[in-house]
Each structure stands twice: as C-alpha cells, then as structure tokens.
Design a protein around this nucleic acid. Structure first.
Lengths: 239, 239
DNA sequence: GTGTATGAAATAATATACGATTCTCGCAGA
DNA sequence: TCTGCGAGAATCGTATATTATTTCATACAC
C-alpha cells in the first residue's frame, strides 16, 4: 500500500484552503480589524467559487475572529477596549488552568527553553523591539500551557491568543513599565513550576499575571481619555 | 414605514433553520450519539437544499456537538467517559468563574428562585425522578451564572452544558448518594453568595462542586469495570 | 436645502447540477 | 471458506446560476 507516501496527496478541501488563506492574512495584519471580507473577491483570488469561502468565513465567525451580519457580509472583528478586556479575562481563566495542569508534565528542558525565551524578552526590551517581545511572550506561554492534558481547554487558549493577535496591533500601545514587570512575573511562575508548587498557586499566579497586564491597559486607557478631553469617535474604522 | 411591525417577518436564514432543527433533535435525544447526519436527507425533511444544512452541521461541529469526517459525513458526537471528563473539567473552570463574577449581581429574588429550585430537587430525589432532577440542576446553575458580565465566558458555559446534555443520557447512571450531596452543596454556594463571600471562595466552591460530581462518576466507572471483568467493546455505537 | 422615494449596482443566500470520494457488497480465485 | 478485486450506490464537495436583500446614488417633492 503506497498510501503512507500519499497521506498528503488529497489537497485539503477548498474550504480549508480559504480558511488558512484568510486566517493567515488576519494574523499577520494584512486584513486589519474592520476589513471587509467580500465573498466573490476572495473566491476570485483563490480561483474557487464563493461557497467554500463562505464556509471558511462562518468558521472564523464561530471563533470570534470575524463578525458577520446577515445579507451584509463579514468583516474582521473590531478592536475595541471592551473586546480586549473580555478576551484577556477569558484568557486569564483558561490559560491559568492550562498552565497549572501542564506544570507537572514539563521537563527540565521545557523549563530551560522557557527561561531562555524569557531572557530574550529582556533583550527585546532593551532594544525597544515590541514585535519581537510580543512574539516571544506568546512563545513563552505556549511552552507552559501546551502540555495541558485537556484538549478542549488548550483549544480555548489557542483561540483567545488568536483573538489577541487581531486586537494587539490596533489598540495596544507598548508600555515598557508593564513589560519589565511581566518578565519578572514569568520568572516567578517558572520557579513555582520548578519547585512543584500547589497547582492552585500556579494557576493563580498565571491568572494574575494576565489580569495585571489587563489592568495596566485599562489604566492607560482611562488616562488617555483623561488627557484628550473630547470623546474619541466611537466607530473609528466603521465601514 | 411598517417595518416595525414586521421585525420578525424575515424568516431566519435556512442555515439557521437547519441549525435549530438539528440542534433541537440532538438536545432532546432524537439524534443520539453516533447518529448519522446525512445532508440530502435532512435537506429533504426541511424542504431546502443541502448547502445550508451543510453550513449548520459545520457550525455544530465547531461547537463540538457533532464530529465530521471528510467525504464521509457527520455524526452526533460520541459519548465516552473521556469526553465526559473533558467537558466536566472545562465546565468546572468556566462555570466557577461565571458563578463568582455573577454573584455580586444577583438580587434577593434570584437567590430565592434558586433556592426554590434546589428544594424542588430534593423532592425529585424523593420521587426518584432523574429527568426532573437533571432539568432542575441545570436551571439552578443557570440562575447563578447567567448574570456573568463576560459574554464570552457565558457562551462557553452554555456550550459545555449543551455538550453535557448530549452525553448525559448515554453514560450517566443516576447516583443517588452524589445527588443528595449535590443539593447540600448548592445550599452552601447560595449561602456564600448571600453573605457576599470572597469571589475566589465562591469560584472554588462552584468548581469543586462540579469536580466532585466528576470524581463520583469516574469512581463509579472504575468500579463498573472492576465487576464485569471483560473489556467492554471499545466502540459501542460505531458505524 | 432637506428629506424622501426610486432604481441600479453590489452582495449575500440558496438551489441545482455535476464531479469526486468513499463505502458496500457480490464475485472470482486461491 | 477466505481474501482480494471491482462495479455500483451513497454521499460529500464545489461550481454555476438564480433569487433576495441591502446599499448607494440620483432625482423629485416639500
């Protein structure tokens, strides 16, 4: 049977093709929040019909990456502070649990890898490289939660990270103070894991780590509204 | 403009029609785990084409209520102990948080309503009415978490309850001992809420409440395997 | 000038039709 | 009797075509 050599032979369905095509563009920012996803247009770019593209978009909608309106169309999910807050809260919850349950399964090598990434974050900070910092941040946490034995919760964590990716660029103004604390908290979490701390303690540390970032953002937002007195236009990227 | 009187005139899309049609049947057990969802068949029953039915099924797949295989088709998600464990763990996490954050928003009337439902559960227990007990259990918890201010987490709670609904019938053998404890724990949670306890304490009480039910089930499972020595067929409802 | 009708263009929603893949089952040969 | 093969059926996947809805621009009335 030659099927072993052919496992990748069947080209994944056009729906999946469309899904990864769109997803890729959302992730890397080519489709930024508010961008309108027009079925025939995307279908044309891919050389397929609108049907599979539609399915892909509905999937993305279910994941919360795009918003959809009947008979009107889809657009990349809007980035507003409220969305950011909701996502960060949810992530603090599921990631905290994932990190705690993955902790006992981490090897010394895993810890070492995470610590190395965290050291890299310090460097990115010194070089004022927010992009690298953000990427390393995700990588650090990925090491810590990816061995979570509950696949459903792992999926939820991945999904929220994806949402964060969309929101990040648009509303996250780099806050060096917070970033520095963040690196220190990472080290603290690593130590808890190393010493085999109570899972609940790890969970709460991971949760609080994220909630603190959220608080920093919310404070920063409030302050921003304080200084510029006029109410910023409510729908900046509308239509 | 007469559209005010017509707001409900537009018949929700056929995709939505198909979705609720299938969802209803999964929820009430007419489509039990393993049931095959054949596109043309369902399309015929609804008098629509296969396209919207397909979309509905993909949505249900994203929610984890049906499993899908390329070029083969969809079937209602299988009920096995592992799935039950995963779902209960996830629910313990999100429901715990939802309950804790909803607690400060509950009125005296909410608490009273919940307590009344809990009293009803005692009665259902005395009358050996598992169906009523299960329904009341869901109703009780709904009151406690539905005011959770994070819509995303509320959605996750709803989704997991839906999954439980599918699994329940097939694998849950009624365990009176656990049920009696359950009612007592409900009352304990209510008291915590009433006295304005620390949110974390409420969260952990709600979480533990569910995890204890899960443990009872797992113990019961292990015991069952102990008595009947042969390994039960691995895929009971297969194909 | 402002607001309201009207029609054309854009777009989504669905139906139909066809092609591709997988499954089923009987038959031939060992 | 068992195993491998192949034809046909069942079913999914997608393209094309049609219909319905929304949106936008224009013109008309007040």
């Amino acid at each position: 049977m030659a099927e072993d050599a052919m496992t990748e032979a069947l080209p994944r369905s056009k729906s999946q093709l469309a899904y990864s095509y769109i997803r890729e563009r959302i992730d890397d920012g080519r489709y930024s929040p508010g961008f309108r996803l027009v079925l025939p247009a995307i279908a044309g770019e891919l050389g397929v019909s609108a049907v599979p593209v539609r399915e892909a978009i509905r999937l993305l909608e279910a994941e919360g990456l795009v918003e959809f309106e009947r008979n009107v169309g889809a657009r990349v999910a809007m980035a507003n502070p409220r969305e950011y807050e909701i996502t960060m809260q949810t992530l603090s919850l599921v990631e905290g649990w994932a990190t705690a349950t993955a902790a006992p399964l981490l090897t010394k090598e895993d810890i070492a890898a995470a610590r190395k990434v965290n050291d890299g974050m310090t460097k990115s900070l010194e070089h004022f490289d927010p992009a690298a910092f953000t990427a390393q941040n995700r990588q650090f946490h990925s090491v810590l939660f990816e061995k979570c034995p509950n696949p459903r919760i792992r999926e939820l964590v991945d999904r929220d990270w994806a949402r964060l990716g969309v929101l990040r660029e648009s509303i996250f103004s780099f806050v060096p103070d917070r970033s520095r604390d963040s690196v220190a908290e990472h080290e603290h979490i690593l130590q808890l894991i190393e010493q085999g701390a109570d899972p609940l303690e790890i969970e709460m540390a991971a949760r609080q780590h994220r909630l603190t970032t959220l608080d920093a953002f919310l404070k920063h937002e409030a302050q921003r509204h304080e200084t510029q007195r006029h109410g910023a236009q409510p729908h900046p990227a509308q239509r």
